[in-house]
Write a protein that binds this DNA or RNA. Sequence first.
DNA 1: GTCTATATTCCGATAGAC
DNA 2: GTCTATCGGAATATAGAC
Lengths: 193, 193
Amino acid sequence: MASRSTQILEAAARVIARRGVRGLRVEELAAEAGVSTALIYYHFKDRTGVLRQTLAFISDRAERYTTDRDPDDSPLTPRQELEESLLLELQDTAQVRENSAAWGELRASAVFDEVLREDLARATLDWIQEVAALLGRVLPMTPASLLAAAAERLTALLEGLSMRWLSGGTGIGHARDLMRGAIDAELAGLRQN
Amino acid sequence: MASRSTQILEAAARVIARRGVRGLRVEELAAEAGVSTALIYYHFKDRTGVLRQTLAFISDRAERYTTDRDPDDSPLTPRQELEESLLLELQDTAQVRENSAAWGELRASAVFDEVLREDLARATLDWIQEVAALLGRVLPMTPASLLAAAAERLTALLEGLSMRWLSGGTGIGHARDLMRGAIDAELAGLRQN
DNA sequence: GTCTATATTCCGATAGAC
DNA sequence: GTCTATCGGAATATAGAC
């Protein structure tokens, strides 16, 4: 059912995960998708068009796997939900790797590209608020500002760990341990207030 | 006294901070350094060589401004030294911005470039060990593995916050507050063991 | 060591047939 | 819609003089 465009975007996500945004070559993308380069220009106008649509495609997909979880059986505790949500981004699967790599690329590119900044800031804020809400469910009655600060730290740490994982410095298991440790530490800190 | 190589590396740090690793053109680097492109190849073999040595240069420089502090008056407490060391990387000065931007770029590039991985991993490890040592001076008798884990989290968080600051999502003052909060949280966590 | 050419490679983009 | 073939520009890298 996947249309040609979708097929190309899926291939683009794989290529970006492998080579980065800057490393994406239209020719390699064509080979990965099993089509000619001309067809890519036909569907996406130019290389930038491919990039833009691929990033949109990827963030769609990330939202989808984040919420994929309700085979109506075991309901999670708030604490489990929090941990689950954060550790979801630290898994060695092709899809998560692709998404994380793309996110990291986006973040890094935004440092030098004003155009990307706004979208990225908005997406980050949404994410922080989501995590703050999860924290709030674990520890109700906690002041919102403290929840927000903890959520900012946890998400920023996750981005940092994710980059270290992808850049080969840290094993995925170790990164997950560190993340769990940080959740413990933040919850302990919040309880002390 | 700055040798030609040093002069080129300083220029490279500036260009990377401005355009990113991805955006570094040998020709632009040559212009920035006030030399010919050929000279760059003479000194650094190829573009990757420039990148590698710039990474080394930058981490050197970071260590140097980290330890620049002994007009023999007020000796710092271990706790102050720790905070100082970490917050040094979150200052809105040209040099820190340059170092942070370049570091972030190298980290992001290493995800897709095997050649950069090893150097980056070594520099990261050194940094973690340095922070672990500072933590150990604040809390002697703490098991080394716990110190190392806390140091890994603090440094990874710092990288994450740094990227958010540079990509415009987080103000520098707020980032510093978050970092201080994390130090408190980690020290509290370590004390509980 | 340093420069001025210039070679070489790579890659985005298009023309035109089917 | 899709392909084959190719152009043109940009960027890396080298040759050779000084």
